[in-house]
């Protein structure tokens, strides 16, 4: 199959699918090939879907760091990383959630200092989410355990045969 593309003024081609891949087409790029009635946006052509998904999204320039008079504190400090809370969750209840929180904390830092403030905010939300999940899973597990202990004790059981406390 041979594809033609147009920028609205001139048309280019013919291209093979592999050549088309190198043209960095977007879903809005108009495409024509033999069999189509007219120029069609690439986003509406199913067989080009794979091509489009491998096209990186447009890069938004990082916001200017010091464009305001004085120091803008909001931009000198990354959003909340939840690092400390994640460490507490790791040490006191739920290791997997705590570690996940710590990993996202590092993403908050790296995204913030590479200029991706939006990505840093999203990573911060993820870090907070994992930390809170860990906290609540821990709390609910302890409550279930307490209920289990009370019920067993009421039935005359004892816990001395259970695993040692860790």
């Amino acid at each position: 199959m041979e594809y033609f593309i147009t920028d609205g003024v001139s048309n280019f081609g013919p291209f093979t699918l592999d050549q088309l891949r190198e043209k960095n087409i977007t879903p809005a790029t108009k495409i024509w090939y033999s069999g189509l009635s007219g120029w069609t946006p690439a986003g509406e052509i199913p067989e080009l879907a794979a091509l489009l998904s491998s096209t990186p999204p447009p890069i938004s320039p990082p916001p200017p760091q010091f464009s305001y008079p004085g120091i803008n504190y909001a931009q000198t400090k990354p959003p909340k990383t939840w690092l400390v809370e994640s460490i507490l969750v790791t040490l006191f209840c739920c290791l997997p959630f705590g570690i996940a929180g710590i990993i996202y904390a590092s993403r908050v830092e790296s995204k913030f200092y590479s200029g991706d403030h939006q990505g840093a905010l999203l990573a911060s939300e993820d870090a907070g989410r994992w930390t809170k999940i860990g906290f609540w899973v821990g709390l609910v597990s302890v409550l279930i355990w307490v209920v289990f202990v009370i019920v067993t004790a009421l039935n005359g059981g004892n816990f001395e045969n259970f695993t040692p406390n860790f």
Partner: peptide, 20 residues
């Protein structure tokens, strides 16, 4: 006191976790 919560990782594997 045996009614304090146990570490599920230690209970399952016999190995201590970082929080044990």
């Amino acid at each position: 006191f045996s009614f304090f919560p146990k570490c599920p990782f230690y209970w399952l594997t016999g190995y201590k976790c970082p929080g044990c």
